[in-house]
Design a binder for these strands. Structure first.
Length: 189
DNA sequence: GTCCTGATGTGCT
DNA sequence: GCACATCAGGACA
């Protein structure tokens, strides 16, 4: 599995390097696995789209902690979003997981999402949290522990595309979204 | 396929 | 009060 050192690096490097890696979540004796195909970086109090732009709050507290921890927040009164905290303690930064290609536990994911179309299962940040049964109670979970982790995957043989981040109004000048070119589970073009 | 709307918790400018 | 790192469903075409 990926170590603390992997996450406690500059966020843009972590974001790009996460593409092709495999997210694993264990629920009882079921494993849910998926390959990360789309991410976005949110970096520090100076990033006008980052939750840390107003300083530390209850909601964003774990972003200020050590890297290699899940930051999950609730938005639009309805959806949860999965992020991985990056950089050493004190630097508020994280990578949003926006697109995942299902690998294992697909039947369970479909039940959790009440969805019978694989193409629509995990191609978006809200969908990913439903498919992997994640909510804010999992925020702060260590990704180098056992319940949730990220492993090496097939992270060669694809091209990385870059764009502005999705769904934000400020900070669109920063090209901090990265995705695997041509992958079907990227949330949008 | 496109466009529009409603769902509604959290933190704020 | 209002914006917000979203999504599903309906009205079209």
């Amino acid at each position: 599995m990926l170590s603390r050192e992997f996450y406690e690096r500059p966020t843009l490097d972590v974001a790009r390097d996460l593409l092709g890696k495999v997210f694993v979540r264990r629920i009882d004796n079921i494993s849910l696995k998926g390959r990360i195909v789309e991410v976005e970086a949110y970096i520090g109090e100076d990033d006008p789209a980052c939750h840390a732009r107003f300083g530390q709050t209850n909601r964003n507290r774990v972003m200020y902690g050590r890297g290699g921890v899940a930051y999950i927040y609730f938005i639009y009164g309805m959806y949860d979003m999965l992020n991985y905290v990056t950089e050493p303690e004190g630097n508020a930064a994280a990578v949003l997981i926006r697109g995942i290609e299902p690998v294992e536990g697909i039947e369970t994911m479909m039940q959790l999402r009440n969805c019978d179309n694989i193409a629509n299962l995990t191609n978006g940040p809200g969908k990913i949290c439903q498919a992997f049964s994640l909510d804010t109670s999992h925020s702060g979970t260590d990704l180098t522990g056992g319940e949730m982790l990220v492993t090496e995957g097939d992270d060669s043989g694809f091209e990385i595309a870059t764009s502005s981040r999705i769904g934000i109004k400020n900070g669109t000048d920063r090209q901090w979204r990265f995705y695997i070119k041509g992958n079907a589970f990227v949330s949008r073009l």
